[in-house]
Design a protein around this nucleic acid. Structure first.
Lengths: 118, 118
DNA sequence: TCTAAATTTCAATAAGCAATGAAATATTGA
DNA sequence: TCAATATTTCATTGCTTATTGAAATTTAGA
């Protein structure tokens, strides 16, 4: 469950070009994550600058890190991302399921929960 | 389909307490929308200040407005919100459906698309 | 047309954030 | 312990954004 301060921190973290790119690269990279240096190349910024942004993202709870040898591996915090989506779209329908069903459909192709057919 | 500049504008718009509140009130209000004055009371700011924030939200494409008599009615731009969610979570699974299925489940209670059972 | 209601605009003030490069820290292997 | 690799830290500089209250705009109704 996400509260307002957490959501604000998360949105602020995502409202920056290089941070948004970093998160999206990590989301696509999957649970394994990526070393900081690889991520810096993928995003297209200096390691110094990326480090600054990763600290912001980690503080916002959107990524986590672990050391592996000389590298620090960063990964997307999927539960936080899910909670953020839920926070934003909570109670979105109010008797009009069609207004936010597209949000569900948008996540569809790779993430079918139990029993979905579409 | 949302591109990076649009997503950045949307996240920046959501990264402000009063704007995030306004959007959430509108999301819950449904397709009918709410007059600016009512929204200002709901959010807890002056009409002048809310007007500033609504302009930002509208510019980011997250809300739309229409005049009705003396009032201006604001409503959530549901398609933009859905696209934003999709942009953030695109290609999230990479062979691990369980990592982002919770994002789908989070939208579940009110927005079951065709055939979902959970 | 005059007044009231609803909202926006404007100018001024105040505060927080990103980019840069050099130096520091931590880990590994010889 | 020494050198190399990977990453973070720090200080400086420059830019963008929020708040406030008064004045202006637009619509409605008598």
């Amino acid at each position: 469950m996400m509260d307002e301060p957490q959501a604000l921190a998360a949105f602020a973290a995502l409202a920056q070009e290089n941070r948004l790119r970093a998160v999206r690269v990590l989301v696509k990279a999957g649970p394994e994550g990526l070393p900081a240096g690889v991520l810096a190349s993928a995003v297209g910024v200096s390691t110094s600058n990326l480090s600054f942004h990763l600290k912001e993202l980690e503080h916002a709870g959107l990524v986590h890190s672990r050391r592996e040898g000389r590298s620090i591996i960063y990964g997307a915090a999927y539960p936080a991302l899910s909670s953020l989506v839920a926070f934003l779209m909570k109670d979105c329908c109010q008797g009009h399921p069609e207004v936010c069903a597209p949000a569900v459909a948008a996540l569809g192709p790779c993430c079918q929960p139990q029993g979905a057919t579409a």
